[in-house]
Structures are given as structure tokens and as C-alpha cells.
Amino acid sequence: MIERKLLFTGATGAGKTTAIAAISETKMVRTDVPNSDPTVSKALTTVGLDYGEITLDNGEKFRLFGTPGQQRFAFTWPILSRGAIGLIILIDNSAADPLADIVTYARGFQPLIESAACVVGVGRLETHVRPSLDDHSRTLASVGLLCPIIPVDVRQKADVLLLIDILLTQLENKR
């Protein structure tokens, strides 16, 4: 059986853990600890990695890894990137500066993006319409990247599966 590795990244609160939990068919491995950062309104935060697994209808099995979002854990990003065939960047459009976030992760994962495939999911667009998907697209282009960008609700399994589907399509097109 072919097993592949996918990586989820994005800022704290963007929904990486939620996205993996939405689709994982196994009990997730989580490294959540109490959050002591008052600028982040969540009780727990990931400091190591998230891990889950999913088998698609065609039998392909994916190991799903999530990164910590905070810049101080950027040392984990290249470690978790090893062996990944694709990257899913999640953006919280209600964050203080979503366009800065997309640049942070596009640059932080540039080696993986260049060697694999990448898709961006933007959350909370229904309540925070700005920046638009076009704004995100232009920002990505300004750092030399061209990736599909779609609206997502990472609590919805169908939305997360759509991200993976688009990612796999990207990979097919790269071959």
C-alpha cells in the first residue's frame, strides 16, 4: 500500500488541528499544551505536532501532520516538511493581518512548496470578507508563488477533503 505524507500549516487558530481532526480515521496524536499567550484567544495550543491518518476512496493512505503555528516553533517546520508530498496552508481571515500570515508560511515553507504541491484554504471569509481571495492570490504572487486558494470551513470534512483533492490534482499536473 502506498502511504504519503501531507502537511498542514498556518497561524495559531487557523484550524490545523481542527482540519486534521475533521478527517482523521484514527485517534489523533496531539501535542496541545495550555496557552499562556494573551494575544491568542484559545485555551490550548500545539507545540510539537499533530498527527492523523486517512484512507481515500481509491485506497491511498495519507499520514497527516500539522505544524505548530507560532514563529518561535519555526525550527519544527523543516523537520516536519521532510518527506511530505504536499502542503496545505490555512489562513484565518479574521486574524489581525491575514496577508502577512500567508507570506510568513509561503516563505517559511518555500523549499517544500517548490519541490511539492501547495494549496491555501482561507477560513472565516463569511464573516470577514476582506482581504478577498484575489487579495490573497496577489500577495502570494508577490512572493513568487502561484497556488490554488479556496474558502474553507475546516470543521467540515468535505471542505478539508476538497483541499486534499486539489492538492493531489496539483501533483498530477506537476508530473
Binding site: V33, V47, G48, F73, F75
Partner: peptide, 28 residues
């Protein structure tokens, strides 16, 4: 637990915050 240094004694203070972040990952 989420990687912020709150106390330290070190021969290389520049490393303090990096050690704090790495240690929280290792512990988790």
C-alpha cells in the same frame, strides 16, 4: 508549557528563547 522562557541562567542569553521553544516541543 507553550515555550515562553520565564527564568534563565545561561552562558549564551541569545539562546534562551530558542531553548524554551524547543524544550516545550520536546516535552510535548
Amino acid at each position: 508549557a507553550d515555550g515562553f522562557a520565564i527564568a534563565s541562567r545561561t552562558t549564551d542569553p541569545a539562546q534562551t528563547n530558542r531553548i524554551a521553544a524547543m524544550s516545550s516541543s520536546i516535552a510535548a
